[in-house]
Simulated scan of single mutants.
Amino acid sequence: MKNTVIQSAVELSDQLCNLLPQLLEEQYIAPLALFNGSSIGQHTRHIIEFYQCLQASFQKEVSVCYEERKRDLAIECNLKEAILSIKETAKWLKTIHEPFYSMNLVVKDYQNNDMNEWSTPTTLAREVHHCNEHAVHHLAIIKIGLQHYFPTIVIGEQVGVAKSTTAFQKQQS
């Protein structure tokens, strides 16, 4: 696993696997006012499903379309299922030998009850990068919720912080 984008994805999986076992099931599924009623479980599911959608598309050799992800409530409502799913995703990521494998991305854009669809060539590495940036964004939201509602949870310094932000901050100091 020499590719840094793949390594970053595994590191993000590790961040989630370090956070989630600290939570009680009730904390994981609790609707949080700060999140407009959504839960840490919903944000976690959302992260996981982008990687799962990419994995399924890659393995089936079909176009990836994130709008068509599963939306598996078991991941959202069951802490053990979420952790298992993250570990399975990390295991898959570690098997990637050709990150620049050519793929196709399909985007379904819903506006005013109309759906416009378009596609573009991409690579597995580019889509893993997309999933990583998406994960960082949702980890930042999860971090805010944890700090606000569950301040005893130990949160790693890098959780919810993009590597580019860390690099920029190091340049500034």
Results as ranks from 00 to 15, higher is better:
residue 2 K to S: 08
residue 4 T to I: 12
residue 4 T to S: 10
residue 6 I to Q: 04
residue 6 I to F: 05
residue 8 S to D: 14
residue 9 A to Y: 02
residue 9 A to R: 02
residue 10 V to H: 03
residue 18 N to H: 15
residue 19 L to C: 03
residue 19 L to R: 04
residue 20 L to Y: 03
residue 23 L to V: 12
residue 26 E to H: 13
residue 31 P to T: 04
residue 31 P to K: 05
residue 34 L to Q: 05
residue 34 L to P: 01
residue 40 I to E: 03
residue 42 Q to H: 08
residue 43 H to P: 01
residue 44 T to P: 14
residue 44 T to G: 06
residue 45 R to W: 13
residue 45 R to C: 10
residue 49 E to Y: 09
residue 50 F to G: 05
residue 50 F to C: 08
residue 51 Y to M: 00
residue 54 L to V: 12
residue 56 A to F: 07
residue 58 F to K: 01
residue 64 V to S: 02
residue 65 C to Y: 00
residue 66 Y to N: 05
residue 66 Y to E: 02
residue 68 E to T: 14
residue 80 K to W: 06
residue 84 L to D: 09
residue 84 L to E: 04
residue 84 L to K: 04
residue 89 T to A: 00
residue 95 T to C: 06
residue 96 I to D: 08
residue 96 I to G: 10
residue 99 P to N: 05
residue 99 P to D: 09
residue 100 F to H: 11
residue 102 S to T: 11
residue 103 M to C: 06
residue 105 L to W: 07
residue 106 V to T: 13
residue 108 K to S: 15
residue 113 N to F: 09
residue 116 N to T: 13
residue 117 E to Y: 07
residue 117 E to H: 04
residue 119 S to D: 10
residue 122 T to L: 04
residue 122 T to P: 10
residue 126 R to A: 15
residue 126 R to E: 15
residue 129 H to F: 15
residue 130 H to C: 13
residue 134 H to W: 13
residue 135 A to K: 05
residue 135 A to Y: 10
residue 136 V to S: 09
residue 139 L to F: 15
residue 148 H to R: 06
residue 149 Y to K: 01
residue 151 P to K: 00
residue 152 T to L: 00
residue 157 E to R: 04
residue 158 Q to H: 10
residue 160 G to Q: 04
residue 162 A to D: 01
residue 163 K to T: 12
residue 163 K to H: 13
residue 167 A to V: 13
residue 171 Q to T: 10
